[in-house]
């Protein structure tokens, strides 16, 4: 059932993003399978958010090939089919959770008749049904983030791009959200891409993309990563791969913020 769609949800080749003269993503090539949870992991500032913005179609200066659900990323046909959650919650602080969702549902073109049910379901999915009529601005940061996540669930998008959705949440909520992601993938067949800089979350993904300094270190399953690096955890595997990359490429400085645009190719 998982491989019902032979072609991947996302395919990238020679993907490059330049921001302010700095190459943030450099020559990425990867594929994200449909109906699975793929984790995008790497330290802060490695380009995770830029990659997610490129997938959602809000990043400028993207070159190379980036195909999302069979269309170039950012294509207008994709707008109702991709749910994107930014790192900072993008909801209206002066509206209630329900009013926020109701507006976004209207923008997504969900029929007025179906909106209340969809909104209730999304609120229930993120465990905010009891706070439906509270102002987003009066909520805690974690609750506001979940309103933002609920917006992305509206209209059952085929691809969910979630930028650090679990950051700052307590362990119980984090577990509940990961259960939700698995339910979305298993029951609704959605493709989920979740970014995180917390490596223990990697174990909950079907596949992993390890990103460091704008380059892809690995694209594999957690099991295969641990096996190939003889590590016990994904975190260890990641550190092993970083050391390996540094050894193979002595040009790479320890300072990950160094500009890479002068890289000879």
């Amino acid at each position: 059932m998982m491989n019902k769609h032979p072609e991947p949800a996302v395919e990238a080749a020679g993907l490059r993003v330049v921001r302010g003269g700095r190459t943030v993503l450099d020559d990425l090539a990867f594929a994200i399978p449909r109906g699975r949870i793929t984790g995008l992991l790497g330290p802060s500032g490695c380009g995770k958010s830029t990659l997610m913005r490129a997938l959602a179609g809000s990043q400028a200066h993207v070159t190379g090939t980036l195909t999302v659900l069979g269309r170039p990323a950012g294509h207008r046909d994709l707008r109702p089919r991709v749910g994107y959650v930014t790192q900072a919650p993008s909801v209206y602080a002066d509206l209630t959770a329900r009013q926020n969702l109701d507006y976004y549902a209207a923008v997504l073109g969900i029929h007025r008749r179906d909106r209340p049910a969809q909104v209730d379901r999304a609120l229930h999915d993120v465990d905010l049904a009891s706070h439906a009529d509270a102002l987003a601005g009066a909520m805690s940061g974690g609750q506001r983030g979940r309103v933002s996540l609920a917006v992305a669930l509206l209209g059952e998008p085929e691809l969910l791009v979630l930028d650090e959705p679990t950051v700052g949440l307590d362990p119980v909520l984090r577990r509940d959200l990961w259960r939700l992601f698995h339910r979305l993938a298993d029951e609704r067949g959605a493709t989920v891409l979740v970014s995180s800089h917390v490596m223990d979350e990697a174990e909950r993904c079907h596949r992993l993309l390890l990103l460091r300094d704008g380059r892809l270190l690995a694209d594999d399953t957690p099991d295969a990563l641990r096996r190939s690096t003889s590590s016990d955890t994904v975190e260890e595997a990641f550190l092993h791969l970083v050391d390996q990359a540094d050894a193979a490429d002595p040009r790479t400085p320890a300072d990950t913020a160094a500009p890479t645009e002068a890289t000879p190719r």
Binding site: G57, R79, P80, Y84, S90, Y92, V107
Partner: peptide, 9 residues
């Protein structure tokens, strides 16, 4: 919210 709206239809 503007960025989000502009990724929507």
């Amino acid at each position: 919210t503007l960025e989000r709206l502009l990724t929507m239809p």
